[in-house]
C-alpha cells in the first residue's frame, strides 16, 4: 500500500498531536516540526503530499513557507493547508499574500479537517 506523507508544523504541540492523529487515521506517515525552518528542511527531504502549517510560528511563518514551497518546481505536488487562528483579522490579511490549497480554522475540527484532506488529496 502506498503511504501518503505529511509534514506538520505548529509551535503548539497539542495541534501537532491532533493533526497527527487525524492524518494517521487516513494512512499518512507524519513528520512534525515546531518551527518553520525545520519544517522547510523536512518538506525538501521528504517531498510530502501535504504540509499543514500554522500561520504564526517561530522561524519561517506559514505564509513565507507557503510561498517558498509553491515556487519550488520539485515540490509542485505538495498541497499546503494553512491553519488560521480563531476567526481573526490579522490572519485574514496574511491570507491575501499567499495561495495555500486550503485554510483550516482553529480550533481544528477533526472531521472537517479529514474531509478536506480526503477531498484535496486522497480523491
Amino acid at each position: 500500500m502506498i503511504k501518503y506523507k505529511a509534514v506538520i508544523v505548529d509551535d503548539d504541540i497539542k495541534i501537532i498531536i491532533l493533526v497527527e492523529k487525524a492524518l494517521t487515521e487516513l494512512g499518512f506517515v507524519v513528520y512534525s516540526a515546531t518551527e518553520g525552518k525545520k519544517a522547510l528542511e523536512l518538506v525538501q527531504d521528504e517531498k510530502p503530499d501535504l504540509l499543514v502549517s500554522d500561520i504564526l510560528q517561530p522561524g519561517l511563518d506559514g505564509v513565507r513557507l507557503c510561498n517558498l514551497i509553491k515556487k519550488d518546481p520539485q515540490l509542485s505536488h505538495t498541497k499546503i493547508f494553512l491553519v488560521t487562528g480563531v476567526y481573526n483579522r490579522t490572519s485574514f490579511k496574511l491570507q491575501m499574500d499567499c495561495e495555500p490549497d486550503a485554510f483550516i480554522e482553529k480550533p481544528v475540527d477533526m472531521t472537517q479537517f479529514q474531509e478536506t484532506v480526503k477531498r484535496l488529496i486522497l480523491e
Binding site: 503548539d12 497539542k14 495541534i15 504564526l56 487562528g85 480563531v86 490579522t90 482553529k106 480550533p107 481544528v108
Partner: peptide, 21 residues
C-alpha cells in the same frame, strides 16, 4: 503580547474554554 495572547487563545479554544478565548 500579540504572539503570546494568540497562542493562549488557540490553546483555550481547542478545549472550549470560551471565556479565556
Amino acid at each position: 503580547l500579540r504572539k503570546d495572547a494568540h497562542y493562549f487563545k488557540n490553546s483555550a479554544a481547542l478545549i472550549g474554554a470560551d471565556r479565556i478565548t
